[in-house]
C-alpha cells in the first residue's frame, strides 16, 4: 500500500476538466435556472435589437392625436399620455434600466468585495478603519444618500450610477468580510501560507472562489433590487431625466393615469418583474452549479 515505488507511469492526462463545461452540466439540471436564462437572453436580444423593431423616435416623439390608447395592432402596448409608443419605450427604457442596474451592481460588487476581502483578511486596524467608515455610510438611509448625491451632481446616467454604487457597495463589504473571516480560519488557507503563498494569491485563489457562491447570489438579487430602486428614484424625479425612457420613469409617469390607462403601468411593471425574476433564477442556478460539493 505504502510502497514508495513509482509505477510505470500510465499516460497521465491531467486535463483540467473544463470547469465551464462542468458548471454548465450542473446548471442544466436546474429547470428554473434554464428558464431564467432563456427568458433573460430573450430580453437581452429584444433590447439589443430594438432598433430593428421600432425606431427610437417612436419612444420619444409623441403623436398628440393618439394619447393613452389601449394596445392595438399598430401599438402593441398602446400609447402613453404624450402619444408615444409604449412598446418602444419599454424596449429603449429597458436598455437604460438594465444597463444602470448591471453596471451599478458590478461596480458596487467590485468595490465592496475588495474592501470586504481586505477588511476580513487583514483584520486589526485595517478592518477597524474600513468598518467604522462604513458605519458612517450606513447610518444615512439609502434613499436620502442617493438623493443627496443626485442633487449635488445632477440627474444623468453617470451620476445615477455613482449614486447607486455608493448606496449598494456597503452590503458587499459586510457580506464578503464575514465570508472571508470564516474562510480565513480554514486549514487550507494556512496550508497555502505554509506553501509560501502571499496574501494576494491566497485571497484570489482560495478565499474569493469559495466565497463566490454567496457573492453571486447576492449580486443577482442586487440587480433585481437596483432595477426596482431605479424606478423609485425616477418616481421621485431623481432618475433618468425625461424624455429619455426608463422603466422606473415610465411607472412614475403612469401613476396619474392608473385608472384611465392601466396598460401604461402594466407593461413596464411586467418588464421589471420578468427581468428581475429571471436574473434571480439564474443566480440560484449558478450558486448550485458553482459548488463542486453539490456535483452529481
Amino acid at each position: 500500500m505504502s510502497q514508495a515505488t513509482v509505477q510505470t507511469p500510465d499516460k497521465i492526462v491531467f486535463k483540467k476538466q473544463s470547469q465551464a463545461k462542468e458548471v454548465w452540466r450542473r446548471y442544466k439540471k436546474n429547470k428554473g435556472a434554464v428558464i431564467g436564462l432563456v427568458l433573460f437572453s430573450f430580453i437581452l436580444i429584444l433590447l439589443a435589437g430594438a432598433n430593428f423593431i421600432v425606431p427610437y423616435s417612436a419612444a420619444t416623439k409623441g403623436v398628440f392625436s393618439q394619447i393613452n390608447q389601449p394596445p392595438s395592432s399598430e401599438h402593441l402596448f398602446g400609447t402613453d399620455s404624450y402619444g408615444r409608443d409604449v412598446f418602444a419605450r419599454v424596449l429603449y427604457g429597458g436598455r437604460t434600466s438594465l444597463m444602470v442596474a448591471l453596471l451599478a451592481t458590478a461596480s458596487s460588487c467590485l468595490i465592496g468585495s475588495t474592501l470586504g476581502a481586505i477588511a476580513g483578511y487583514f483584520g486589526g486596524r485595517v478592518d477597524g478603519v474600513i468598518m467604522r467608515s462604513l458605519d458612517i455610510f450606513m447610518s444615512i438611509p439609502d434613499i436620502l444618500f442617493t438623493m443627496a448625491v443626485v442633487f449635488a451632481l445632477g440627474a444623468n446616467f453617470q451620476n445615477l450610477l455613482i449614486a447607486l454604487t455608493l448606496a449598494y457597495f456597503t452590503n458587499y463589504v459586510r457580506l464578503v468580510r464575514s465570508q472571508v473571516l470564516n474562510l480565513a480560519e480554514q486549514d487550507y488557507v494556512e496550508a497555502a501560507k505554509a506553501g509560501g503563498s502571499g496574501s494576494t494569491r491566497i485571497i484570489l485563489t482560495h478565499i474569493l472562489p469559495n466565497a463566490m457562491g454567496v457573492i453571486i447570489v447576492n449580486t443577482t438579487l442586487n440587480v433585481a433590487k437596483i432595477i426596482l430602486y431605479e424606478s423609485t428614484l425616477s418616481f421621485l424625479g431623481l432618475g433618468m431625466p425625461p424624455p429619455a425612457p426608463a422603466w422606473g420613469l415610465m411607472l412614475a409617469e403612469a401613476r396619474e393615469f392608473m385608472r384611465a390607462a392601466p396598460h401604461l403601468m402594466f407593461f413596464p411593471a411586467v418588464a421589471i418583474v420578468v427581468s428581475a425574476s429571471s436574473i434571480n433564477l439564474i443566480g440560484d442556478g449558478l450558486r448550485d452549479a458553482l459548488d463542486p460539493k453539490l456535483k452529481s
Binding site: 491531467f14 483540467k16 476538466q17 480554514q186 486549514d187 487550507y188 494556512e190 496550508a191 497555502a192 505554509a194 506553501g195 509560501g196 503563498s197 502571499g198 482560495h206 472562489p209 469559495n210 463542486p292 460539493k293
Partner: peptide
Amino acid sequence: RELRKDLQIIFQDPYSSIDPRKSVVEVIAE
C-alpha cells in the same frame, strides 16, 4: 518564503485542510 520549501506541515483535519474547489492534482501541485 524560500524556506517554506524546507519546512512543511500536515494538518489534522483532512476535510478543512483541502480547498473544496480544487481537484486533487491541483491541490498537490499548488
